[in-house]
Design a protein around this nucleic acid. Sequence first.
DNA 1: GCTCGCTGCCAATACGTATTAGCTAATACG
DNA 2: CGTATTAGCTAATACGTATTGGCAGCGAGC
Lengths: 342, 342
Amino acid sequence: MPTRRDASRPVTTHDVARRAGVSQATVSLVLGGNPRARVSAQTRERVVRAARELGYRPNILARGLVQRKSYAIGVMVPDLSNPFFLDVVTGVQRVAAEAGYAVLPGDVREVPPQRHLDALRARQVDGLILDGLGALALQEGALDDLKVVLVDEPSERWPGIASDALGAGRLAAEHLVGLGHVRLAFAGPASDVYGLRMRERGFFQVLRDAGIALPSERLRRVPPTVRGGMAAMKSLLALPPAERPTACFCAVDLLAAGALKACLTAGVAVPGEMSIVGCDDVELARVLTPELTTVRVPARELGARAARLLLRQLEDGAAAPRPGKPIPVKLVVRGTTGPARE
Amino acid sequence: MPTRRDASRPVTTHDVARRAGVSQATVSLVLGGNPRARVSAQTRERVVRAARELGYRPNILARGLVQRKSYAIGVMVPDLSNPFFLDVVTGVQRVAAEAGYAVLPGDVREVPPQRHLDALRARQVDGLILDGLGALALQEGALDDLKVVLVDEPSERWPGIASDALGAGRLAAEHLVGLGHVRLAFAGPASDVYGLRMRERGFFQVLRDAGIALPSERLRRVPPTVRGGMAAMKSLLALPPAERPTACFCAVDLLAAGALKACLTAGVAVPGEMSIVGCDDVELARVLTPELTTVRVPARELGARAARLLLRQLEDGAAAPRPGKPIPVKLVVRGTTGPARE
DNA sequence: GCTCGCTGCCAATACGTATTAGCTAATACG
DNA sequence: CGTATTAGCTAATACGTATTGGCAGCGAGC
């Protein structure tokens, strides 16, 4: 039955020490989990019992002060309302929680990057995971004293992990080309985020090798949102029939969702008259009707690995920023793609 | 040009004091923002300049240790992948960030509530916001020493803010009844979350007043997910034609999305043969085709108000847990509802 | 000249924990 | 029996900040 010395104040190591009849230092040694600490079994037992009886809970902040660690990490993504990034953060969260670290997520749309960075600093975060921010944050020399791990963004300076974004673009293209499509379109954001650039490059690689041209009339630069996808598709559908694409690769699932919607709204049959391929495989892909053909990028896995990479750096000291192999992606054929019709 | 005394260690108040030729206490007085501190303008100036020159950044954790505050709050929701809850958290985040507080979000699916609570405690969070957890967390006497604010869950013990859930259910029902629907169905989770219960109650209130019966064959208890909505609608469509509903109210948008999908998959016209009303108005509602008729519940606003309520409690000491009026909701008629056909 | 009151600053302490140097007692060794 | 070694513990200090009591110095008032 837990009993408090004073109900209004949390139990401290001093309280435990008093009750166990030892010094505060001994309590710290026992509860600090340091196995090489020399403490007799009997004393250890007494301390552990006293701690349990008092309901002692260590104050991580106080520990952090002396250890110069906060056991917290920050994560910054461009848009948490994009389920892909939410999944990345979730993956980070899971691994971090397991290791006793807290996660401070930041959505660039909500809080300006610099401000969020300041807040993270003030909280003495031990490390930082950046995803999808491109050169935005990288330009700032302000990350100097921080351990950083990048997701889908190669760098000389910081380690990172990446998905096979090039392969993702290739898979999408091969799928569409294999279905006999020739008049293809591409929709993607104009940002300089590396992963997105690679998806694009992979897509065009395959087209080039297949001898298929994609004139700029069928290239759409739009924000990576549902609304952006709608706009892109709407304008593609406005092309003269002879130039109108029969298939479109959207570099982000949200875009594909918007594109699909534009088609259905306009009475264009999917996949009858228009095939659509997305990329990410967010949950939304299976909610749409027809279900979205897309390339699965394991977002949680990306987050989890990034977190592990960061934590290893934090615990073992310096870790080798060796690039590592990209995480494989996988084409998931569902209902928005079909053979090209004459 | 910022210069560090020692590149490897953060700048402290001691460093600033040394450079300004004053004591650490004076630095703290000046930078602590305490306006009633008696410091000469000249000294103040010197300190401020030294701080700027050294690039001083206060260590919130150290401050928290002495002030017994962490300037952090926790938020717990049942499922962050439900955009509604994500929006609530976003609302919290925005207000908290503004006030210099960090937010530690927790998804009950990812991290067991008790574990997350322990983690929040260990980090000395100043307060906690709970949404959609029903009696789950409330049963635990473990929240004793915490300032808590509840969302959509009335309580004698803690203050909270709520949306007009009863009204939401009523609006949905009135809309469907107004369209002439008589054979109605309801789909909702079996959880004892108060807000959901109220949506349900409001819906049935209107039906009763209109003299419309809803037999249990048309009542579906399913998990509040897209999958749950699909299952519910699939089984409703399997009813004999004479009993099959012509409209369905789904207490959560995700359910409605699933229900819509089940209809489209089964070739049932929406809203021709089946009208569907959701509740929440998450972003997804406008992505679907046809767009979802739903009741808008201002999730961000809920989160923002909850955060303000909590922060006021934290800053001004004890605040009155007066209930306050529920936040109004609004019917948004879109494409999934239409008049009942003979 | 003395007290009084005020201004402006600082020394000291506390917050809760980790860590190290060192002390005591017991044991091992010659 | 004397000394070196070790096990087991504690006192002291540090982490970076906030806060308080009090000390100089100074001008005003008598």
